[in-house]
Design a protein around this nucleic acid. Sequence first.
DNA 1: GTATTAAAGTGGTCTGACCACGTTTTCTCT
DNA 2: AGAGAAAACGTGGTCAGACCACTTTAATAC
Lengths: 210, 210
Amino acid sequence: MNDNRAASAKSTQPKIYLDIVEKLRLMIQDDGLLPGDKIPSERELSERLQVGRSSVREALRSLELLGLIETRRGEGTFIKVFQEHRLVELLGAFFLLDEKTRNNLRETKILLEQACLQGLMQKTPPEKMEEMIQWAESHDWDDEIFFKKIFQLNPNHLLERIWIVVNSYEKSSGKTSRMAQKKLYVDLLHALKNKQGQDVNSIYLSGLRK
Amino acid sequence: MNDNRAASAKSTQPKIYLDIVEKLRLMIQDDGLLPGDKIPSERELSERLQVGRSSVREALRSLELLGLIETRRGEGTFIKVFQEHRLVELLGAFFLLDEKTRNNLRETKILLEQACLQGLMQKTPPEKMEEMIQWAESHDWDDEIFFKKIFQLNPNHLLERIWIVVNSYEKSSGKTSRMAQKKLYVDLLHALKNKQGQDVNSIYLSGLRK
DNA sequence: GTATTAAAGTGGTCTGACCACGTTTTCTCT
DNA sequence: AGAGAAAACGTGGTCAGACCACTTTAATAC
């Protein structure tokens, strides 16, 4: 049974490793796997999907570079909690973004942040906001960390993930779009807590640079 | 420079394929390669970097999944233009599977659409809007097609891509969130053209179904 | 010259072999 | 029997070599 799979594997041409990525997605979905869970070993996947181990590895390495999985030698491969990871270095390193793209990034980021703030205002109980204020006053942070926490507060985690990606992109574009003034952001938090929508927005906008 | 040392005192060398990704980056940078240019073949990279071809492939496949490069069988591997990166799609495709996130789909979609409309109002010349109105009155369409065109009108193509992903996932989640009448949307277009922001928003919201 | 054909180059995939490391089991000594 | 050491096993990491399918290029025939 050495060589004749080349002849048989011709129905769905597209690269095997992409196929495996998709199969993995379905597998994770159907089995209800969560971050931290272990996925089958490379050899087992290879056998189960009837493909070479090298193809399995191409798929896994791709997902690893994306930050979706994590591999530990001797242990196995695990689903990871998504985080920016190498996106910044990768994207920034490979391309210089043109002006138009950069503007899109900035605009989209601002939009997401505004939306998040408005959403928070409607959905977050004052206690939670108070907690956040406490944290803000007792820790050191910059804009990015601040908004990361803001997004974590919002139950719409899809929004959070989109922001993470957009933010990574924008960071890789080189220009830092604003400069944190702690007081300003604390004011913002208070306005949020008091549900003063107009103030939230104007304070946010005044924090933007350029 | 090399990163990825995670957090262990183990003197394990970083994975080769990551090293190759970095080397490739430098190579592209030093040689001044631009989108569309061809990069060395897998076999040549393998020899030049003194690593196995499979490791080279793991690196290349990773970059390919990200949309940073493109490979054409029999021809070679080429650098791609930044705009075509697949990150948004991929990240969406992967962990959108939990229930909670699913419930965020509708909210996020609405948000994106509102934002797109507001952006359009500020940036689109009346002629373009008139064109759109003409099209809307002389063709058949549903909500999805309508908003697809709306997003295409907006020069922020990043926003468009995000919407496409969110929309497609909301569709697959089963519940169709609206079914408005043609007239309503034509009204919306006129309000857009006349830059009546308040009306745009209220008309949009009245078109939503539960 | 053009058309056909052969060769070379390139990505796509598989197999089997090691290595390095972590976990589990087994063995040994007390 | 229990604790600690050693071996076995499982897993990712890497490599070399072999084909296949496809494209480009060079050689050949007309």
